[in-house]
Design a protein around this nucleic acid. Structure first.
Lengths: 243, 243
DNA sequence: TGGGATTTGTACGTATGTATA
DNA sequence: TTATACATACGTACAAATCCC
């Protein structure tokens, strides 16, 4: 059977490997055996004897790897190679945003900057690759926004779907996941400044303008529409800093 | 002293809180007490009695938080509020890149896409805010590149410093850290395709072109220079996919 | 210089909850 | 339903690192 081989018995009296060695040992095991997301890893007990560490150390190492979504633990089932999401980025950034406090929203402002930069920077590519089908789906999402706005309801999920759908045709999974990750961070951190009902109608209009800009096919117009879209949240942040 | 209060004794026979509750309990403690990065947290023993969990559970929870750089543990000293870096993003993304394998460099390609998008998308802002001092520093870094290239030496660190310095005047910490994070991911994943010595001279030239474009003050020229800068790595990826 | 106190790191044993067959 | 395999949780003891006197 394949061994973990984290410490190839160098030196002589080695009482026990450290937790970090177990972490790299497990990562090396995954790489060496060419495991893919979803593949099963050895049980904790097997990992213990393979790496020559105690259960505690192995468990703490596995917890670190699960926090990074490199492995995924299912109670009573086993440990598997993780889906490699960007949850770690979301958790880390979101907590940083919450920590920066209610009065100081500079982290939230920076997240908005990044989101706007990505969407504006990809304006030309989006227009180039976005086909009629995608445009129709975006338009349908805006329709939903308008309906929900008319009923004085939130449309957080629709908003998320819109920004993801906008990036989808690019065919870049990383950009897609970053888009969703930063959206999530904003959704977690922003609640301190609550969206007012009348803003929803305006927000829906801004999204409609983005779809129109994509349809028009002018990157400069799309960039302007994106800037307009983020204007309200920027104003909210500016107001929160003052008052 | 303040308690953690993760599980306010709801129900009756509660054998023990789950690890996730301990995680949120510690996060809440940090937020509730308005702790800042570097501040000291209670000892593990204190956390145990505060949250009513065993030391093993508390330790595993702390390990999760330390993986996200929300807390930082120093052996024999204590546990502190973390620096909130993007190390979690780097580790997660880098491992994903390594896992995607030597033959399939699509993750690396996506990272390059994001880096290029950020630099191109911020071209106008960079030109607007970059002053003579920063320009001189960028120019000095390119000088170093040229010197090292002439000596057939790597200039990885100088390259990293250049791309960070380019973003610095924007005054957005998040963009700065993302720049460095994606650079690190590329540095970890790219070694499978080794940079050839003759490429270094060209690489230095491409960085010189970026400085020149910034000096010229034309965003379109800067965007073109950035595209040229990433062209070699893109070709390397394309070659690796085929051969 | 050193030694004791504090705090995290590691190890081991046992019992329990959970999913699968 | 029972049995098995696995992760989860708790508790204790000791080792290692850091700090302070």
């Amino acid at each position: 059977m394949t061994t973990i081989d984290a410490s190839p018995l160098r030196g002589q009296e080695r009482p026990g490997p450290r937790r970090q060695e177990v972490v790299t040992g497990i990562k090396d095991y995954i790489l060496r055996n060419r495991l893919k997301p979803g593949d099963l890893l050895p049980t904790e007990t097997e990992l213990c004897e393979a790496v020559g560490a105690s259960r505690s150390s192995v468990r703490e190492a596995v917890k670190i790897l699960s926090a990074l979504d490199i492995v995924e633990v299912r109670h009573g089932h086993g440990t598997f190679v993780g889906r490699m999401s960007l949850n770690a980025l979301v958790e880390s950034l979101a907590f940083r945003g919450l920590l920066s406090g209610e009065e100081d929203h500079h982290v939230l402002g920076q997240v908005v900057d990044v989101r706007q930069t990505l969407e504006q920077g990809l304006a030309a590519e989006i227009i180039a690759v976005l086909d009629g089908d995608h445009r129709a789906q975006l338009s349908a999402l805006v329709d939903q926004m308008e309906d929900l706005a008319a009923q004085d309801k939130d449309f957080l999920e629709v908003d998320r779907a819109f920004h993801v759908k906008l990036m989808e045709p690019l065919g870049n999974d990383l950009i897609l996941q970053l888009t969703e990750a930063f959206w999530q961070v904003q959704a977690i951190v922003a609640p301190t400044l609550r969206t007012e009902p009348e803003h929803r109608v305006i927000t829906a209009q801004r999204h409609r303008a983005i779809v129109d800009a994509v349809t028009a096919g002018d990157p400069a117009v799309l960039r302007a529409a994106v800037a307009e879209h983020y204007a309200p949240i920027r104003e909210s942040i500016a107001r929160a800093v003052q008052g």
